[in-house]
């Protein structure tokens, strides 16, 4: 199927939808630049991982069931978040493992659910989106995307084609930032200690910006960077590639 005719459904994810709509807009722009037509299924809310991670699997299943309906028949579903994609791809099957009537639909949705960078690189075969950034970029590998979906290579391939950019790997670039959903509030002391280390490691690279694939990590790390008053900020990979750094920094 030629990219031109392909319809791709965008799942913004609740954090991006509500706090960083420009990331979803950048995501749509990138997908269109890669040659597909973007549609947005109406009435989307959340993937449900907050409830799932808290052990409230009945609540999570209720959200998941709703998503099975909302995303039914929409073709490939792409989202700017590794953790949300991992939730749909892996954890929905866990929620419905004893519910054969829903398992087929769950597997069917999982098979067409993707995170943004893996969709661009592995499915559409696109690594050059005509992006430009004059400066040094470092990377934070978001945990769920990295260990749940094996994401790391795709983001780096995309960054390698950003004109004018120099990539500097941070020490322990796959070290957890300490967000972990509600963990960031329920275990805020540990979470703060973890993000302090992450900020130190990112800043030690001397890069101008850091880039990551999950807006949750972005919120955690930017939150600390902002409080400390350091010049560096974290951008979502979609923002960097689409070329909207100014808009992104306004919301941190």
């Amino acid at each position: 199927m030629a990219n031109q005719q392909r319809l791709v459904a965008l799942f913004p994810t609740c954090i991006v939808d509500m706090i960083y709509p420009e990331i979803a807009e950048a995501t749509a722009m990138l997908l269109e630049r890669a040659g597909v037509t973007v549609v947005v299924p109406p009435g989307q809310t959340c993937c449900g991982q907050v409830a799932f991670n808290s052990g409230e699997w009945r609540d999570a299943a209720s959200i998941a069931r709703r998503n099975l309906k909302v995303l039914c028949g929409w073709g490939d579903v792409v989202m700017p978040s590794g953790s949300c994609a991992a939730m749909i791809r892996h954890s929905y099957a866990q929620l419905f493992r004893n519910d054969p009537s829903l398992l087929a639909a769950t597997h069917e949705l999982a098979a067409r659910t993707y995170e943004l960078t893996e969709y661009l690189v592995d499915i559409l075969g696109v690594t050059d989106l005509g992006a430009r950034f004059n400066g040094r970029i470092t990377i934070h590998d978001a945990c769920h995307g990295l260990r749940g979906l094996g994401l790391a290579r795709q983001l780096r391939l995309l960054l390698a084609n950003v004109a004018g950019a120099q990539i500097v790997e941070a020490p322990e670039h796959d070290r957890c930032c300490g967000f972990g959903g509600l963990f960031s509030v329920k275990q805020s002391t540990i979470s703060s200690a973890m993000v302090a280390r992450k900020v130190e490691m990112l800043c030690a690279t001397g890069a101008d910006v850091a880039v990551t694939g999950d807006a949750s990590c972005m919120t955690q790390i930017n939150g600390r960077m902002s409080r400390l008053g350091v010049p560096m900020r974290v951008l979502h990979i979609a923002q960097l590639l689409a070329g909207t750094p100014k808009g992104a920094l306004q919301n941190t």
Binding site: D17, A24, E25, A28, K186, S188, T219, G223, N251, T252
Partner: peptide, 22 residues
């Protein structure tokens, strides 16, 4: 407030992505 002891928090956008897209 456990968050803001050590981190700043962003303001939610005035209109969500879905609203803007629609």
């Amino acid at each position: 407030n456990a968050w803001t002891k050590s981190r700043d928090f962003p303001v939610f956008a005035p209109r969500s992505f879905q609203e803007r897209w629609a």
